[in-house]
């Protein structure tokens, strides 16, 4: 936070500062790496606690649901339906994982958008870090590999050879399929990381326009500040949408990949 003050004093606002991981408390060292409780960790814990508190509303288990129960059941039903549509009956056993994934990312994205600056806190979106999205993507990819090889053994490699493809074409298609398969975890991780990072940078840049224009004088302040602020309102709304869409895309792609592992190319 000291750097933030410093950059502001220099007259420029660093839009990247929001992504800085700051240690709150160093905990222990393992293999030369310090494990610290950071602002990122704090928001992960906040997402976990928030998600748990949200889910508690759904644990009333009444026949006629309460309002909170309806919300929670709506989300569970949403993921349940997503998996049933994409994977079929076998999809039900993946509901816990995909639901946790979806809700964890959704809560992370939304928590990072909270206007906590108003109360002096710095919001942090840990899904804007590829170290985090990478872990989530590798988990999804590992599940695909584990399920695929456990269920189909070496036949899982037939994923790279679509049925009925002539041999000469296959020589071309199989490497392409293989590359597209191997790119999956990167596309999963980078899509979320880039979407979050870009949105937050855009918001901070627009906000710095407002602040800098106001510092430059009344005319510039109003002329630049008001349109920038109007744009910020719109972009903020868009970012809320993106937060939901990115969580959905992550869950959807994971379910599509799991479908490949479950059914190879037979399904659909």
């Amino acid at each position: 936070m000291g750097t933030a003050v410093a950059t502001q004093e220099q007259g420029s606002i660093d839009p990247m500062h929001q992504f800085e991981v700051q240690s709150i408390a160093d905990m222990f060292t393992i293999g030369g790496q310090t494990i610290a409780f950071t602002n990122s960790a704090m928001f992960m814990v906040a997402a976990l606690v928030g998600l748990w508190a949200f889910m508690l509303m759904g644990m009333k288990r009444q026949l006629v649901p309460t309002r909170g129960q309806m919300m929670v059941e709506g989300f569970v039903g949403f993921i349940d339906k997503l998996l049933a549509q994409n994977i079929g009956k076998a999809g039900r056993k993946y509901v816990p994982y995909v639901f946790t994934l979806f809700m964890f990312i959704l809560f992370a994205n939304l928590l990072g958008l909270l206007p906590l600056g108003l109360v002096g806190l710095h919001p942090f979106t840990f899904t804007s870090h590829f170290t985090v999205t990478g872990v989530l993507a590798i988990m999804s990819f590992s599940i695909v590999l584990i399920v695929g090889f456990a269920k189909h053994g070496l036949r899982f490699f037939s994923l790279f050879a679509p049925k009925g493809t002539p041999i000469p074409v296959l020589l071309l298609v199989a490497p392409i399929e293989f590359v597209s398969f191997m790119v999956r975890p990167f596309s999963l991780a980078l899509r979320l990381f880039v979407a979050m990072t870009a949105g937050h940078i855009l918001l901070k840049v627009l906000a710095s326009f407002v602040v800098n224009a106001a510092n430059a004088g009344a005319v510039t302040g109003l002329g630049v500040g008001i349109p920038s602020f109007a744009l910020m309102v719109g972009v903020s709304a868009l970012e809320v949408l993106v937060a939901g869409v990115q969580a959905y895309v992550f869950a959807l792609l994971t379910s599509l990949y799991i479908n490949d592992a479950e059914h190879l190319h037979d399904h659909h």
Partner: peptide, 15 residues
């Protein structure tokens, strides 16, 4: 390292 540790811990607990 700490990002990995915390995301695995929190996501694991969430899961």
């Amino acid at each position: 390292a700490s990002q990995l540790f915390w995301v695995l811990l929190t996501f694991g607990l969430a899961f």
